[in-house]
Design a protein around this nucleic acid. Structure first.
Lengths: 166, 166
DNA sequence: ATCGCTGCAAACGGTTTGCAGGACA
DNA sequence: TGTCCTGCAAACCGTTTGCAGCGAT
């Protein structure tokens, strides 16, 4: 078995790429090498990538794409629903493959910056109910919990204790 | 009874201002006219204001403050927990008075941009439970539902119907 | 009187845009 | 072959920063 860097099921990227190609053709938009490369980079990583991350990833792979094209393609991916935009308060945006109906949300540590994903059907249910109650037709959501991860929380506690004992 | 532009209970701004002053003094930070004016502008409006909004609001009131000071003071307010930062994907940030424990969340229309607030104790409960399950010490959260408001949803439906009948 | 906040303007950095040339349909 | 996507670089814009001077403590 081959070692793989990161997460998504093998073959998933290929399927997503097919969907992307189909979506482009349906809108009479050209399927260019750059668009495929950018989409593939995002799908293969399966994580939260910045535009810069993608430029770098592709450069490492020997492909050269302009930053502007990366932004344009990412917007395209968001439009057709194959990617979602995230803002983790870093001063720039990150993008992530959107596996359609599989919704998940994030816990973000404001101290060390670690991002933990979680998935709870109760969130889907509750948000759906709220949207309905307000007559909104919700397409996407951003549920982010900011605070201290267990490690940083413990460290902060230790600091406080030390200060208290001083 | 006097006509009032916007929302928060009268006197609320004054109380919040007092808390801000106390917080500054506690940290041995000077209570300047600018800081008071900026905080008051935010507290009185009670809505989601951008830094630019505040500069304008103060200029209208005859007070002149630098944009840099507005940003610095807003960060100060966030640090002491009297304001929260919002990002509604407009390319800039908005700030809102934080009434401490009274948490509320937002529905955002991606078509007309209207922002609707809602408050549901179930959200507090669920988020608290999730944070606990992951050992996170959550301080703030961002729960945003993006989609079409009733008006825009209806308009979109009408468009689709028209297209279908063409 | 001292410390550090303010304000102006320039710097900064992520994102967008204009335009000449080349790739897809 | 025509359209429009790409890539470079400059423009853009919200935010941050450096520095001289004044205000709060």
């Amino acid at each position: 078995m081959k070692a793989v860097e990161t997460g998504p099921p093998l073959g998933c990227a290929a399927v997503m790429l097919g969907v992307f190609r189909a979506a482009l053709q349906e809108q009479h938009q050209p399927v260019t090498q750059q668009r495929e490369a950018i989409a593939q980079a995002l799908f293969e990583s399966g994580r939260h990538l910045s535009a810069e991350d993608i430029v770098e990833k592709l450069r490492e792979g020997g492909e050269s794409v302009g930053k502007a094209t990366v932004y344009r393609t990412l917007n395209l991916l968001v439009q057709v629903g194959l990617a979602v935009e995230h803002d983790f308060d870093e001063g720039f945006r990150r993008y992530e493959m959107s596996a359609g109906p599989s919704r998940h949300d994030h816990l973000i540590c404001t101290s060390c910056g670690v991002v933990v994903e979680f998935q709870r059907s109760e969130v889907d249910d509750l948000m759906g109910e709220i949207a309905e109650a307000h007559g909104f037709h919700v397409l996407t959501r951003q549920v982010k919990l900011y605070g201290l991860c267990p490690t940083c929380d413990e460290a902060a506690d230790a600091d406080l204790t030390r200060a208290g004992l001083r």
